[in-house]
């Protein structure tokens, strides 16, 4: 079946090439001689000279006679998950770039230079593709309901409810606390500041505060409860 398909391809290609006046350059698609063979050194030099003069036919010939490289290199990347048709298209672009940028004065063969260009083109594409695999669009449809309405990723994405008001609330709370603290006596205020690390103080245990103020821990505990009740009352008055 495959062989029949190759013969159809061959027939199709031979007609097209005949129409282009290249009947002498028909190659069997599907066999080892499927593509135009590499040019001889002399032919290649002649074509390169003509390319410099702006001859597009010479450029086409250089491209076509190096297409074997594209197929050979593309096949090396078949296991990367990219379809062979894409790899050959990418490799062909790499080859076109190679023929356009090749400098005959540099001591390097066109085939060597083209191979590097084709491989680089495919590698760059693969890198881009791998990077994209980790990216997802906000407009990515997750599901479609019975009426055909798409559920997009952006529909289900959100932020914490208080993300915008959080800082504002904190600022208001700080002001309320400051105001309530101002209603306390100096000693009460000092105890709260030491216990809860307010107004630049370091947070301390009841025991530490008791030791520093020369009173018992149980007394600090009772005072603390009493002050907190008072602060709550002050808050209620303000809110």
């Amino acid at each position: 079946m495959k062989r029949v398909w190759y013969r159809i391809k061959f027939f199709f290609l031979s007609i097209v090439l005949k129409l282009r006046g290249k009947a002498d350059e028909v190659y069997y698609i599907g066999g080892s001689e499927a593509l135009p063979p590499p040019l001889s050194k002399e032919e290649e030099k002649e074509m390169l000279d003509r390319v410099v003069e702006g001859d597009d036919r010479a450029k086409s010939k250089l491209i076509e006679h190096n297409l074997r490289l594209v197929v050979y290199i593309a096949k090396k990347f078949e296991n990367t998950g990219i379809h062979i048709e894409d790899l050959i298209s990418i490799g062909s672009i790499g080859l076109i770039k190679a023929v356009n940028t090749f400098n005959p004065e540099k001591n390097i063969k066109l085939a060597t230079y083209a191979s590097r260009c084709i491989e680089n083109e495919i590698l760059m594409y693969l890198r881009r593709n791998n990077k994209r695999k980790t990216e997802i669009s906000f407009d990515e449809p997750l599901n479609v309901d019975w009426d055909g309405n798409e559920l997009l990723l952006s529909d289900v994405l959100g932020t914490d409810e208080n993300i915008i008001t959080k800082d504002l609330d904190l600022s208001v709370d700080k002001n309320l606390l400051k105001s309530a603290l101002s209603k306390l006596t100096g000693r009460e205020k000092q105890i709260m500041e030491m216990r809860f690390g307010l107004s630049g103080h370091k947070e301390q245990t009841q025991k530490d505060v008791a030791e520093q103020l020369g009173i018992s821990q149980s007394y600090i505990s009772r005072l603390e409860k009493k002050i907190i009740r008072r602060l709550k009352k002050e808050f209620n008055k303000m809110v």
Partner: peptide, 8 residues
């Protein structure tokens, strides 16, 4: 169809 023609 170039890719297609090149695939053996």
């Amino acid at each position: 169809q170039v890719s297609n023609l090149l695939i053996q």
